[in-house]
């Protein structure tokens, strides 16, 4: 087995950040905790080699991203999109409504597209690093990111239009 002390230190130090990434990938805190545990269990099996390779966090993140894709394929209906009772209402600011709408749109994106956006715009990975994490080509990363952003932009454009119309009518 691996270096227990080093592994423990890694978990304590990096699990908050990894959990946040998991949350953005899955949109659900409890699932993210489980995903993180699954990834840690897999990393621990080869911890010596993982640390020798130099970037244990990237390794665990890669496991999370790929595990997450598998989960989604098996249980595409498990995610909580649309099951959240508190929605941005008419009294809330347009900025809040906009961010809420974007988050819902992110959750509705295909898993790979969402993973690309999280890795690129949350983790700030380069296109090459994102491709390595996902096990795909840089071209795929580019196209997925472009597609995802385009959908969000369309949503934002539409939301702005609707909000403006409402203000005019109000």
């Amino acid at each position: 087995m691996g270096d227990d002390e080093g592994f423990r230190d890694f978990v304590i130090a990096r699990s908050p950040a990894l959990l946040r990434t998991g949350y953005l990938l899955l949109g659900d805190r409890a699932l993210a905790e489980d995903l993180l545990q699954t990834a840690l269990a897999k990393a621990y099996r080869h911890w010596g080699r993982v640390t020798a390779a130099g970037s244990p966090e990237a390794y665990v993140r890669r496991i999370m991203v790929n595990e997450r894709r598998t989960w989604w394929h098996r249980n595409p209906g498990r995610e909580l999109v649309g099951a959240i009772p508190d929605r941005a209402g008419p009294d809330e600011s347009s900025a809040l409504a906009e961010r809420d709408a974007v988050w819902r749109a992110v959750l509705a994106l295909p898993p790979r597209t969402r993973a690309v956006l999280v890795l690129r715009y949350w983790e700030d990975l380069s296109e090459a690093e994102t491709a390595a994490t996902l096990g795909c080509s840089v071209g795929t990363v580019k196209s997925q990111a472009s597609r995802g952003l385009r959908r969000l932009q369309e949503l934002l454009d539409g939301a702005a239009g609707a909000y403006d119309r409402k203000r005019v009518q109000g």
Binding site: P16, E33, Y121
Partner: peptide
């Protein structure tokens, strides 16, 4: 969209801390 997205990610991730001893 990418700017809004960064804000949304930051807002959503804020407060996500392990609720248990990981």
């Amino acid at each position: 969209a990418d700017e809004v997205l960064r804000d949304v990610f930051a807002e959503r991730a804020d407060g996500i801390t392990p609720s248990v001893d990981v």
